[in-house]
Design a protein around this nucleic acid. Structure first.
Lengths: 330, 330
DNA sequence: TTGTATGCGTTATCAC
DNA sequence: GTGATAACGCATACAA
């Protein structure tokens, strides 16, 4: 690998001049030409470490997420990398596997100047380690006023789900949720759901097991067995994620419950496992591309020392699938 | 961020001594203690750029693949990052989107010392740009003797697929493939399939459209309509990937062909869209974890200047799904 | 407009 | 065993 010195010698100029050419600083056209020729001839590539040491910029952002091996995160990671690349940034991928220590290790790395900033989607308590001098954007989770976050409009999503079931003819709705206490923005899905039901005087039930309980599946199945299969009290289900929705559907189908004829189901996420994949279930789709775009815009603004809006809430959409009846509106 | 100088001053020693402590070089216990205390007090983190500039090592590897937004690549990326992390390496994720120029840009980046090595899964002709002084491991594709590659045993996979169909009672087999000419290791799936059929005197047909043809789907459907739906000449299909298999199954089901009763189908890849996902179709599963492990082992060995075996072929397994009949052997 | 010189934070080679 | 110092490759303030 040739250095700036060698380029300077070959071009018959000084290193300073070469540096100027590289960084697009005014230089006499003729010298510029000579330098560019030398660069080409020597196949010179600036050493990013020397530059990084000097200017303290690496053009690299870390993306911390539970695991890229998940349709939602995969799509998100893909889009974020794409956006970053457009802005000449590289992306270090960090699968935290939801592990607190792994997340911390990555944040430490960030502080060692390995990266200019972090985009994180995490549910552990890394708050104390997130100092305000480290540019960071959070997805789907509120930390504090210092950390801007971008998220889907979960409240609206909950409303849309309830509305979707309502308009498709359901009489008695139900929200099924669970998972970590920390996912405080996804909590709003439930709130939106309830809000719609209250406002429109729809019957509804809530099955929501927060915190980790090993036997969540058992309890949920018991709930379904009683309320849906036996008593037939519920004919519209909003599951907090597509994964839950799928699970519920599989369970009900075992008991010959027809979907959507007898029971209608709406999920949340709208993930596709790849670009060409087709979504089968009715769902509230998160605007993953937009989330990616806003996150990248945010982190770069932060790196550039600009002020960034503390929260960016992005609209969601109802996607008609095969698990709700088709109405005029959908 | 504090520097090594400040640590030295606080500990009452020289920078050289601090450096020794950091790099675990013998130092008097007492001084070591003092230095470590100062490090803690100042919350000192070595600057990786200064170190990188000095030792020309970044502890970073680039992973180039078409898109992480794909179950197979997602799983692969997840596992590779996991392995790299265990070895104290970071991973830069590069979605090339199959684009030649993007791949090139990333290779250029690698040459700028941003990364110590590359793990690539690419189908374009980047051969000329891959100089032997840049550590690189290829997955699924042979470039030349200078570039070690790791791959599934595609030939064995082809044999297993044919054997699976045969033992499940199929009389007349068929291979359906297509895609890029460049995927020369996946070509072996076809070879293995043919090999089994020849050796065991099974009837077989090949439908293989190499190169890109816009109307691949049309032609394939026409083929299926004639051979499977109308003439009923084929009762066992080996599709070169799960994606094709799925497509074929959906198509046949439209014509009320029962699978696996009338026609049996085996795919290739065995991808799950997440850890908890369940595979539904019968398939030949690629050992993604092993591929990840071997790639990482390989790239690190290369970085460390060791010699690496030019090819690593890993065994595949037949996975019984719902699209082939169950036999005693399976 | 261009060249020279200094320093970024670290490691490594010397002396001591 | 420890300290002083040169060097890594580059950007930049300043001198010419």
């Amino acid at each position: 690998m040739s250095t700036i010195k060698e380029v300077a010698k070959r071009a018959g100029v000084s290193v300073g001049t070469v540096s100027k050419v590289i960084n697009n600083i005014e230089v006499k056209p003729k010298t510029k030409q000579a330098v560019e020729l030398a660069i080409k001839e020597l196949n010179y590539q600036p050493n990013v470490y020397a530059r990084g040491l000097k200017v303290n910029r690496t053009q690299t952002v870390a993306l911390i997420l539970p695991t890229v091996w998940h349709p939602f995160f995969g799509e998100l990671a893909y889009n974020i990398e794409k956006c970053l690349r457009k802005q000449q940034y590289k992306m270090i991928l960090c699968n935290s596997e939801g592990d607190y220590l792994t997340e911390l290790a990555y944040i430490t790395m960030a502080k060692q100047n390995q990266v200019d900033g972090i985009i994180a989607i995490t549910y552990s308590d890394i708050e104390a380690y997130v100092s305000s001098n480290l540019p960071i954007i959070s997805i789907d989770r509120f930390f504090n006023d210092q950390v801007p976050y971008v998220s889907s409009d979960n409240f609206l999503g909950g409303e849309l789900a309830a509305k979707g079931l309502d308009q498709a003819g359901c009489q008695s709705l139900c929200f099924i949720g669970g998972g970590s206490k920390k996912e405080n923005t996804t909590r709003n899905r439930r709130k939106g759901f309830i809000n719609y039901c209250e406002k429109n005087q729809k019957n509804y039930e809530i099955f929501d097991l927060t915190g980790k309980s090993d036997n969540f599946n058992q309890k949920m199945e018991q709930f379904l067995r009683e309320k849906v299969i036996e008593k037939r009290e519920i004919d519209g289900i909003f599951a907090v994620t597509d994964a839950y929705a799928l699970q519920i559907i599989h369970f009900l189908e075992q008991f010959n419950i027809h979907i959507p004829e007898e029971v209608q189901v709406i999920g949340f996420d709208g993930v596709k496992s790849s670009l060409n994949d087709q979504i089968e279930i009715s769902t509230i789709r998160q605007p993953i591309e937009k989330i990616a775009k806003e996150s990248v815009k945010g982190i770069i603004a932060l790196i550039d020392g600009q002020v960034v809006s503390p929260e960016m809430i992005l609209p969601v959409k109802f996607i008609q699938g095969k698990t709700t009846k088709i109405t005029k509106n959908s």
